[in-house]
Design a protein around this nucleic acid. Sequence first.
DNA 1: TCACAAATGATAATCGTTCGCATTTGCAAA
DNA 2: TTTGCAAATGCGAACGATTATCATTTGTGA
Lengths: 143, 143
Amino acid sequence: MHKSKDLHQAGLKVTLPRLKVLNLFESSENHHLSAEDVFKMLIASGEDVSLATVYRVLSQFELSGILVRHNFEGGKSVFELNHGEHHDHIVCLQCGHLEEFFDSAIEARQKKIAAEHGFTIHDHSLYIYGDCTKESCPHKHRE
Amino acid sequence: MHKSKDLHQAGLKVTLPRLKVLNLFESSENHHLSAEDVFKMLIASGEDVSLATVYRVLSQFELSGILVRHNFEGGKSVFELNHGEHHDHIVCLQCGHLEEFFDSAIEARQKKIAAEHGFTIHDHSLYIYGDCTKESCPHKHRE
DNA sequence: TCACAAATGATAATCGTTCGCATTTGCAAA
DNA sequence: TTTGCAAATGCGAACGATTATCATTTGTGA
Ligand SMILES: [Mn+2]
Ligand SMILES: [Mn+2]
Ligand SMILES: [Zn+2]
Ligand SMILES: [Zn+2]
């Protein structure tokens, strides 16, 4: 089972809570989850974990590269599995619907800008906020 | 005095705390200030205001377009005067040094991406994080 | 199986921010 | 000018997200 292997190669002990969290991310419909999401979903499915442990595990997973953390507007961190392919996000302010994109032109410009300003680039975050056109989006259903 | 005029045309009553905050932003060396920064700087200069009022005023100023709010990593909001010219930021993770930039290529790509995904773009935030090369940056002074 | 460091759970504490409410103040009408 | 009153303030309590503390439990390697 590759789940405990993931933990091993991250240098983390294979504990029940960690397996539960990893499991959840690998099986969940929604790929972007907050600590509260994870906690509630685990509790709901009968897996009891402590909220404190959820927070700890999420941070450890981020540190070891298993998860990526995002800080969207709204103050709470959101995590997703790190599939190794960087991407950015476009978020609907009405319904929260989220889409992913990657644009090599933008990535290239960022590198250039960092260099021009004498910065060694570590990371960047780009979020586009707008209104989506999904049928289910409440935005479309307001007069 | 254009400061009270700014408040008037924003539809806000001209109160002492609001003038103090506006004043601070217009005279401060550092253009990017958190609520705590504003509060402490005002207190330090003998202007006594309530922290709650600082938060309220900052939010009102954001709403009326006098200030722009940024959500950098670290969880606290940072504000700057809205000079009408959108720009993004590159931040040093070591010393917090911050530089501004505007890149029309990136802006254009973002518009295109939003359109491709069927989004009406409202806003976006782009932060580049890295290490700067300022002499004063602690990064340079660690072995 | 054992020993022990590491991880967990429960809960208190922290941090940034907002709320509730009694008091003050800007401002416009008289 | 005074006066009336809605709007703004100050204070402290409350809040939501997250982290810290610490006694107890659990992997793991010997
Ligand atoms: Mn994603
Ligand atoms: Mn700026
Ligand atoms: Zn939507
Ligand atoms: Zn620096």
